[in-house]
Design a protein around this nucleic acid. Sequence first.
RNA 1: GCCCGAGUGGCGGAACGGUAUACGCACAACACUUAAAAUGUUGCGAGGUUUCCUCAUGUGGGUUCGACUCCCACCUCGGGCACCA
Length: 768
Amino acid sequence: MVKYNPQKIEKKWQGKWYNSNIFKAQDFSKKKKFYALVEFPYPSGDGLHVGHCRSYTALDIISRKKRMEGFNVLYPMGWDAFGLPAENYAIKMGIQPSITTKKNTANYKKQMQRLGYSFDWNREINTTDPKYYQWTQWIFLKLFEKGLAYKEKMAINWCPKDKIGLANEEVIAGKCERCGIQVQKKEKEQWLIKITKYADRLIKDLDSVDYPERVKIQQKEWIGKSEGAEIEFILNNFKKTIKVFTTRPDTIFGCTFLVLAPEHSIIEKVKNSILNWQEVEQYIIKTKDKSDLQRQENQNDKTGVELKGVKAVNPADKKEIPIFIADYIMINYGTGAIMAVPADDKRDEEFAKKFNLPIVRDYQRAGFEDFGKKTVQYKLRDWIFSRQHYWGEPIPMVFCQVCNWVPVPEKDLPVQLPKVKKYQPTDTGESPLAVMEKWVNVKCPNCGGVAQRETDTMPNWAGSNWYFLRYTDPKNSKKLSDEKKLQYWMPVDWYNGGMEHTTLHLLYSRFIFKFLYDIGAVPKSLGFEPYKKRTSHGIVLGQGGVKMSKSLGNVVNPDNVIKQYGADTLRVYEMFMGPFEQMIPWDEKGIIGARRFIEKVYTVCLKGDFSKPNSTLDIQINKTIKKVGEDIELMKFNTAISSLMILVNSFFEEKELLTKENIKSLLLILSPFAPHLAEELWERIGFKGLCSNQKWPQYNTTLIKEEKVLLIVQINGKVRDKVEIMADKNQKEVEEIILQTPKIKNLIGSISIKKIIFVPNKLINVVL
RNA sequence: GCCCGAGUGGCGGAACGGUAUACGCACAACACUUAAAAUGUUGCGAGGUUUCCUCAUGUGGGUUCGACUCCCACCUCGGGCACCA
């Protein structure tokens, strides 16, 4: 027998699959469609990571099974290739990002093909391709046209190391998500997208999709809807009011003071009446210098200053109350002002105690709208869409002194990213594109006068917002995708990706899909949600449970694993190592188990001589077909493989008695996991066609039933005996049997039986 | 502080309220071999008076004939949010 040689076998079958295009998704096929999607990677210089493989292998298994079940499967792949690393590399080496991107994507593709993934490579897309980002820009124009994109000067999160503005979602605990550096505040003109307008729908429509509950909860909490009321407080002696937002308008009789964010605009307006202006001004300056994180540091030690000489009137009891500014009030939530009810709110209570303010208990309750108007507030902010970097989609806008911001006409798209010599972002926060005078200076599309292009580029989420739509029609030059093709393929039936994208990509792309729906760019019949079902894989940790990272030198490269053990082994190992949605450490030793299993299959299939056909294994085979099929649907890959292992162990014990049909069933259910091995054995044993093109086997329900069962005998809930009896015996029959066995008879002795609990074919419990 | 999730052998982990520890790794003994590797066979939670019994699924209670599983309280770890009014 020829020794198992995965390198040779895998190369052979990859050649056959990819040359004969068997994974091609057919537009408008009569078969039922199935759209499986994994998050497309950023093609870094380091190559594919074993963490990527976990997600891709899982949906590859599902896709392969669905094809065998007769579905027309779309399982596409592409490249989310705009981003900082390529730009940083360009800065370091002076090489065009487009060149490194090309090199990296070629490497990634080769690596993916080495793993035998059944992607339809005819539909490969790349977000940096002008033919692709033309439509990313087009979506921006539409957002602008509908008033959902606007430019505003605002304090943004600025990373001093990456020299880039960040969206709120990209700031983790006050630090840059990428480099971990403390984020600063910087005033800049920024493009913003009104995702807040969709906040309600982004919450509500979660009810209609199949996502893990924790993903739904996280998204809802991120959007942070709270219902309350806005109440106006009149300033004494001024013709001015302060609006506060509260979720507890019923507690207004307990309000004994107001607190404003130090940035509140009313302060400037009543400045002249503030008796302690110097003190107030100093506090405002001090607050400005603090980052959001520093502001949060002293949660238990509240600071603030009273605006002396200015008082407000509580509209409920008409009493005069003092006004404070304090940095525990945030300007960008609610109205930037609160009514403090120290009897009911812990923070207000703390503040009141520190400043000796009255705390009124036992106050009268008010109705929800007695003194104000019902409103809704969200924590979600509008999405900062400008980045001061080179390697991104140019924002297709032109600034004209006369006409203000003018969109580039659709017919002039794409606005191509020009080649530059210097990629460095600048300390002033201006994009490297700003120095490209030839590119920047254009005629105003509106009046023909002197105008300049926007030099900021889009964030790297822009391209991934809608990529799943492009796969349905990747080469269309007239539209982002043909309506009929969208109609056929969408929605995505199953989308797997990382938990880290819950409040980023997943939320953004849901929003953009709703927007495209609203403007009619996707067919109305598709509904509001792009992804029917979302699942998440657990990340792969390094040996010993630490994070895999370059600096620790514990990153596992799939190429090395494939070289040493083979792609089928890697696939099986990654699915076997633990529950799919759970974080799991890589274990170099564990791979050996997967390899032994593969070799065992190889040996047992080729050693059978099939001369003494027997079928003692039929029951077990049918049970395994059922178990593996069900487990794949539930992403319980680890137990699916475990049951395959058990079956193969049985095959091994009875290898002289195996039939060709036995082997056939095994190969079919094994093929999604270890497709190369399955194809090779399929051919060697002499079955026709490609194993990947076969029908998924049906299990025989009558064959799943055992004739004999092992029945557990308990006394007082403790296992005392096990008896093998014919299946489907009733309680009386079983009682007769077990009460006669010497062991049980002995244990019961003369004690009287209180009760007998009987579970058919499983258990009998005698209660004494 | 709030919201999720998880605690089971030496390790990764299995287990519709019904045989706890499947499957795999590691380990040990044996077989094959001049030898090693590979492979195969057997054993492998702890303890005991060892055909059998007792105790073990983070801790303490509860429900139940029966609890890793359900309920209550607590401890530890991981993730998310966080002065959000």
